[in-house]
Simulated scan of single mutants.
Amino acid sequence: IYDLGTRFMIDSGWIIPMQEMIDADGYDISQIEPNVAAYYTTEDGTMYSMPFNSSTPLLYYNKDMFDAAGITEIPTSLPEIADVGDALKEKGGAQEVLAISIYGWYFEQFLCKQGLNMVNNGNGREKAATKVEFDENGGGLNILNAWYDLYKGGYAPNVGRSGSDTATTDFTSGKAAMMLGSTASLKQVLEDSGGNFEVGTAYYPAVNEDDKGGVSIGGASLWALNNKDEKKAAATWRFIKFLISPESQAYWNAQTGYFPVVTAAQEEQTFKDNIAKYPQFQTALDQLHDSTPESAGALLSVFPEARQIVETQIENMLNGSVTQEEAVKNMAEEINDTIEEYNLVNG
């Protein structure tokens, strides 16, 4: 189940919490990357599913353009991207400075970077959320103001929603100097750019230069359905252990670009060979390790709907039909209505 489905699955009553299987087998949970495990763990310490394919967002950049522009410091925040924008256009040959898709995941990550919650009740980890917090804590407006400044300055044009993949194409074709994208896209980006320029990877940018938060993960995890059958449960746990074994995770990492969820996978030769071939991938692991469980992100039953609402309002903002303040207000009201409706039906 993808990450957005986590709270829904916890609430569903269909599953055996992974913690029960972990405890029954005496499995050493410290083998799992702690900042990955944190996403699937609630405040009471219960891990509900097992991470499998996990990723974080990265800043991809065209090293050749940066060299031509004489830029040696890679931007670490959205304002810093604006600061190097003119040089990248005038000296680096970039037609676009930053290709950023309208994607709810990026909005969520920008909240994590600020160290701010998206929803109440401990970001939906103490118990199911009843309303959003990004409108009250200032996080949402900070994001939209910074995003709009880049757009208005001519540094981050509207390249559409994430499904269009225009941002990736703009970057790999050499049109854009930078793009935001998932770790899992790394191999595809390297293949699509065809060696025409050197691809660099850096940490996901902060909204403000003094933000101290980290990143959350995307991807998906493995759930055990409760079939009231002990044999099936035992077989499920055995299969899960195979899928998260160091050998499996090293192979999966090398074939996809998702990073391995167990630390011992980094000792596998398959992993070592892959990182030697694609050193850009080390950035994703470093960023994961430099983050904290506090930046794990929100759990929300209506996350798919919430993400659509966020994307629509960002699109409306860039199209000039709403201000940043109106966009945040609309997001909050619409998501809160969706949460309330869900909680009424499933309360």
Rank of each mutant, 00 (worst) to 15 (best):
A37Y: 03
K241G: 00
P246A: 05
V261I: 15
F8Y: 11
N343A: 10
Q31L: 08
V97M: 07
R307I: 13
A68Y: 06
Q109W: 06
A167R: 09
I217Y: 04
L141M: 10
Q287N: 12
G93I: 04
A332K: 11
R238M: 07
A69V: 05
F52Q: 06
L186T: 12
A202D: 00
I71H: 02
A332M: 07
F8P: 00
T338D: 01
I100P: 00
F259H: 13
P51G: 04
Q282E: 12
A284R: 12
Q188N: 10
T169L: 15
A177P: 07
G347Q: 12
D211R: 07
E43S: 14
I244W: 01
L243R: 08
M47E: 04
T283M: 10
S193P: 09
E20C: 00
E209M: 11
A176H: 02
V310I: 15
W223F: 13
E33W: 03
K131W: 01
D44P: 13
D11G: 02
N121F: 09
G5R: 06
A156N: 14
Y342W: 15
N319C: 08
A264F: 02
M317W: 02
P75G: 04
F171P: 07
A167Q: 09
N123H: 04
I22N: 03
E90Y: 01
S291E: 09
E305D: 06
I102G: 03
F66N: 04
L222P: 05
Q287F: 14
F134R: 06
F66E: 02
P34M: 02
L116Y: 08
N330Q: 14
A220G: 15
W223A: 14
R161M: 10
G195P: 09
I217C: 07
F107D: 01
A129K: 06
S55A: 14
I335A: 02
L180R: 05
N316I: 01
N319A: 13
S248A: 15
L116S: 12
A38N: 11
W252D: 11
T183N: 13
E73F: 01
W147C: 01
F239K: 12
D135N: 15
G297N: 07
V328I: 14
Y258G: 08
A306R: 03
M118R: 13
A156Y: 07
I335R: 01
E20S: 05
N208Y: 06
P260L: 02
I275E: 11
L344Q: 15
Y251T: 13
G163T: 08
S182M: 09
T169R: 15
D273E: 13
F110D: 05
F281Y: 15
T169E: 14
S221T: 14
I143V: 09
D211G: 04
G174I: 03
D3V: 00
D165M: 05
N158S: 09
P293N: 07
N117L: 14
G219A: 06
L243E: 05
P34V: 01
M179T: 11
I275Q: 11
G218N: 12
Y203C: 00
Q109L: 13
S182C: 06
N53M: 09
A82L: 14
L288A: 13
D337M: 06
Q255W: 03
S12I: 00
I240P: 00
E73S: 06
G297R: 09
V36S: 11
A177Q: 03
A284M: 13
I102N: 03
N35T: 11
E325W: 05
Q114E: 08
A202P: 01
V119D: 03
A37C: 02
W237P: 10
I100E: 09
